[in-house]
């Protein structure tokens, strides 16, 4: 059911407060980082905040463009680093990840879901139809009396048959495992990249859980 008569306005097209030109120039000279969460729990984003005061040393060199922290919904211009959380579970995820690949020099898979599918990938061993049936038809928490239906609309992203790791969709440059990775691990990788060192995540801070 589509209603093409409605003019869609995206949030990034709405009028916004203008930046102070001097401040904007400083921010634009920094290394641009865009962040996104796909099929994950945003725990890796919270881990990003766990860098605590270590982040201060990065903020002189790095600025965050599109992310849930800044509430920007589009990548405003080409970025150096893309921070990707979550696995790929629907067609919208694929589209956005490809958009990130086109607009970022370096993409980093952060967390178990982005690296191999993680907790959402537990549905990979169950046929998709069975998943839908369990969630919408035979759901024990369904509203009594409500019509049981599997949601379908062109505006709702289509669920992929399996949850895929990001690197099975586009090329990913670096991986930070963990569920979530420690703030220390995220800092180590970002700090290496920002300072032009070869990225190295030592075994004592590498975690899969």
């Amino acid at each position: 059911m589509s209603d093409n008569s409605v003019t869609e306005i995206f949030s990034h097209e709405l009028p916004a407060t203008q930046w102070d030109p001097a401040k904007k120039a400083i921010e634009e000279a920094k290394i641009q980082v865009a962040m996104i969460g796909f099929c994950g729990c945003w725990g890796c984003h919270l881990s990003f905040l766990d860098m605590d005061e270590a982040m201060l040393s990065l903020l002189d060199k790095v600025t965050i463009t599109r992310s849930s922290f800044t509430d920007l919904k589009r990548i405003p211009h080409h970025c150096t680093i893309g921070f990707i959380e979550g696995g790929i579970a629907n067609d919208e995820n694929i589209e956005v990840l490809e958009h990130y690949r086109e607009n970022c020099d370096i993409l980093i898979s952060v967390g178990a879901c982005a690296v191999w599918g993680g907790v959402p990938a537990m549905r990979n061993v169950v046929p998709l139809e069975e998943c839908f049936r369990e969630a919408y038809i035979d759901s024990p928490t369904a509203v009594p009396g409500a019509k049981k239906t599997i949601p379908y609309h062109e505006d709702i992203p289509k669920i992929t048959t399996k949850v895929m790791p990001c690197h099975e969709v586009v090329k990913m440059d670096y991986f930070i495992p963990g569920c979530p990775p420690d703030g220390e691990a995220i800092f180590k990788v970002l700090d290496d990249l920002v300072n032009g060192r070869e990225v190295d995540l030592p075994s004592d801070i590498n975690r899969y859980d």
Binding site: V115, G117, I176, P177, N206
Partner: peptide, 13 residues
């Protein structure tokens, strides 16, 4: 120093 598997994850039931 494994970060990710270079092989496709199989998810065998």
């Amino acid at each position: 120093d494994m970060m990710v598997s270079r092989f496709p994850y199989r998810f065998t039931p």
